[in-house]
Design a protein around this nucleic acid. Sequence first.
DNA 1: GTGAAAGCGCTAACAA
DNA 2: TTGTTAGCGCTTTCAC
Lengths: 339, 339
Amino acid sequence: MGFENVTIKTVAERTGFSTTTVSRVLNGTYRKYRVSEITAAGIIAEAKKLGYIPNQAAVNLRKRTNNTIGLVVPSLSNPFFSTIASVISKAFYLRNYSVYMVDCDENEENERQILSSVSGQNLDGLIVIPSSTDHKHLDRLVAARLPIIFIDRYFEGLPIPYVSTNNYIGALTAVRLLASRGHEKIACIQGNPLVISNKERVRGYFDGISMEGLNYSYVSGSEFTQQAGYEEMNRILDANEKPTAIFAFSDTLTLGVLQALNERGLKVYDDISLLSFDNSRYLDFLETPITSIAQPVKQIAERAVTLLLERLDNPHIDQESILFAPKLIERKSIKNLNK
Amino acid sequence: MGFENVTIKTVAERTGFSTTTVSRVLNGTYRKYRVSEITAAGIIAEAKKLGYIPNQAAVNLRKRTNNTIGLVVPSLSNPFFSTIASVISKAFYLRNYSVYMVDCDENEENERQILSSVSGQNLDGLIVIPSSTDHKHLDRLVAARLPIIFIDRYFEGLPIPYVSTNNYIGALTAVRLLASRGHEKIACIQGNPLVISNKERVRGYFDGISMEGLNYSYVSGSEFTQQAGYEEMNRILDANEKPTAIFAFSDTLTLGVLQALNERGLKVYDDISLLSFDNSRYLDFLETPITSIAQPVKQIAERAVTLLLERLDNPHIDQESILFAPKLIERKSIKNLNK
DNA sequence: GTGAAAGCGCTAACAA
DNA sequence: TTGTTAGCGCTTTCAC
């Protein structure tokens, strides 16, 4: 830092007590050792006067724990993830935990590296929204019994609790709603195809298609960005067989869809129906308000916090994963073709 | 962690070299000490086999530095801040720095506490978007010569470089544009009134009003949230003297404005003109696309990174603060009253 | 080219 | 009620 040389030793010398006593007082365990209140008060006063601040590295090295949890997210520039990060960060702060947060940029290799160095940080636990397809790089951490909770994306082979939305039901609901309005050609634009939340939506999409006995299906897309949505939508509009409805797997994708539509002077509802995932606040105010599948983002984040906290308290607790129910928010982007 | 007992000592025992040599090899300084390549290769191989991961707490304690920078943000749930956080996090990751990120929840007291404990973390530097009005709690860090960079918000009394948008010019431009379209009653809805970026916008607003010789002015608002925007807009609509144009200081506020308007069946442009700050992507696709003042968010974040990195390299460098020019993005939310 | 030894600041047995 | 002592894992001076 700079001239942070005030240590317990300094305080010990100035008060005439041993470093042990000073340490006990200053880390709050002194009652347990029945240090007299008067001694404690003196030490605390002196520490304050000196501007003593405990060196966390020393504490960490000694106690082999940090009061810090790690939070690994794919990308903070995606509102879905940054909202989660915000909730988690605040929740742990309130409980005197630090959060060591890393943005993987939706990149598997980054995630691997980050997680491989994570054990060097002596973290107490980890909340991760994986960017990765497999979990080899996690196995070591799991074996070391580091408490981990997954959000949004998870690995079915791993005995690690996860919290997410029931994406399958969400997509199924979406498709069936569209079908009930007479849509027979429903195309979907996916995000990251490697990730389970996306895969589950695809599965729900196909099951919806087959339940409804439709014989058109179309899935494409590669990542959850506006640019990708834009490109995919253009591809769809350039194809021979055009869908009557689009199911976009996120609002970032939706923005790209709208961009493509705009450029061609096409209107949501009149020219093509649209349904999205995420239910961002602004959907209400769009030219055509867009029907969407909402995820309970805050609940998801809060549950993850609870789970990790439980686990920190009791490392041997048995925990259940949870898939929250998505919620259909109807607006005005779906034309009724039943006439 | 768990059973992370592989230390340099383990590696030393297994290879027959001293911990000194092992340390030199494993932290990459061995060339300097002319350790033979063959020794190095053997040690590296063994370390890899053992799954050795350096204990950062020990490194930190010994070297009194962390390769970690702190990032203090008001709230990750605000897209403006989360975008910045994303850029910064990725940039430092690329340069092998860890980022210790904290969300203050736009709360002064939180920030104070966070910053007071920060020196215990042995951080190498700090990027902060302050939530606070004064800088007393920063003085100690400044005195300790900890490299700090401010983003968006800053303190003029402090010799700390900042990077932000020229908010004054942004607001001035906005008001003058509105006035040039014949608007004489322009109300503005502000965000956090304590924060300099907001204050500068207010100043620009008032200067615009007076330059244009208008005699109506109205400023209210308390925080950068949709809810606040909604409440303020309702207040405005319930007042006797109604403005013809609204200048909202962020897109989060804008959403609240639209919500209030929607509820009353009022239309942007036809019933009231609207201009916002932030230029979110979705503004293009709103029922009435909204004219906005854009901030170069990524540039801001990247410049902050560059400044801090420079400072880390050379602690005595003299650095310039910078105010980026805002950019007016015209859309269709401003009616021309000059007829 | 390699190693012995000291010590970063803190905590925790163990003693008294 | 308080203190002595050892040591967490690493780096670094000094020595050879």
